[in-house]
Simulated scan of single mutants.
Amino acid sequence: MLDAGHQASDCVHFEEEEGRPVRRQYTLKGIESDTINLMRAAAGQEGMKINSWVSMRLREAAMRALDEISTEKSKSNSDNSDSSSTISDLLFEMSKQRREFEDHVRRLEREIHELNSGQRVILTSILKLTT
């Protein structure tokens, strides 16, 4: 996905089509090679492929940015009238619950990743014993 020798990187986007995920690739241009090296190191430390790591981190950053925008809008709307304060309070609470849910999902993803890594270690050890 990312190559320090190139100025672009491919990203994969998944969408549902007839109940199955569809894989679409995108290119990110102009990423500095130092940044790519840092991403590779971080992905490696988490035992992930760089494309999965980058996709997960970009998704997290985009969700945070959207939540911040939503929160700012709900705050500005609440300043306009008292009747909208109830709606903005609900939107703020929904945004908070969404962030909590996303944090929970991230923790589950990391736990699943750790389990998969452990299984790979066990499988590698078993294969070494049988050869």
Rank of each mutant, 00 (worst) to 15 (best):
T35F: 05
K29T: 15
K29M: 09
I31F: 02
G47Y: 03
E46C: 13
T35Q: 10
R40F: 11
M48P: 06
T35S: 07
L28F: 15
N51S: 03
N37E: 11
L38P: 01
L28P: 02
K49A: 13
M39W: 15
I31V: 15
L28I: 15
G44R: 05
D34W: 08
T35E: 06
G30Q: 10
A43E: 10
T35Y: 07
V54W: 00
R57W: 01
D34T: 14
E46I: 04
G44D: 13
E32M: 08
G47F: 09
K49P: 00
I50S: 04
S33P: 12
T35I: 09
L28Y: 13
K29R: 15
A41G: 09
W53Q: 04
N51M: 03
E32P: 05
I31E: 02
I31T: 15
A43V: 09
R40G: 11
I31W: 03
A42R: 14
K49F: 01
S55G: 03
I50K: 01
L28M: 13
L28K: 10
L38D: 14
I50C: 09
E46G: 07
M48C: 12
R57F: 01
S55I: 05
I31D: 02
L28T: 13
M56Q: 08
M39R: 10
S55C: 04
I50G: 01
G47M: 04
R40D: 08
M48R: 11
I31S: 10
E46W: 01
L28C: 15
I50Y: 00
I31K: 03
M39S: 10
G47N: 00
M48K: 13
S52K: 09
G44K: 04
N37V: 05
E32G: 06
L58K: 04
N37H: 11
A42K: 06
G47P: 00
L38Y: 02
A41E: 14
S33H: 14
K29C: 05
L58M: 09
K49S: 07
N51V: 07
R40H: 08
I50A: 06
S52W: 11
R40T: 11
Q45D: 07
G44V: 10
G30M: 14
E32Y: 02
E32R: 13
Q45Y: 08
G47R: 01
V54S: 01
S52I: 06
G44F: 00
A42S: 04
V54N: 03
W53L: 02
S52T: 08
L38R: 13
T35P: 08
M56A: 11
M56E: 09
N51F: 00
W53M: 00
E46K: 11
R40E: 14
A41M: 10
S55Y: 04
L58T: 09
D34E: 14
S55E: 07
N51L: 02
G47A: 05
L38S: 01
Q45V: 12
D34R: 15
V54Y: 06
A42Y: 03
L28Q: 12
Q45I: 04
S55A: 11
Q45N: 12
G30N: 14
I36N: 06
I31C: 08
S52Q: 12
N51W: 00
D34M: 01
S52R: 06
G30S: 14
E32N: 10
A43H: 09
S33L: 06
A42D: 05
W53N: 00
E32H: 03
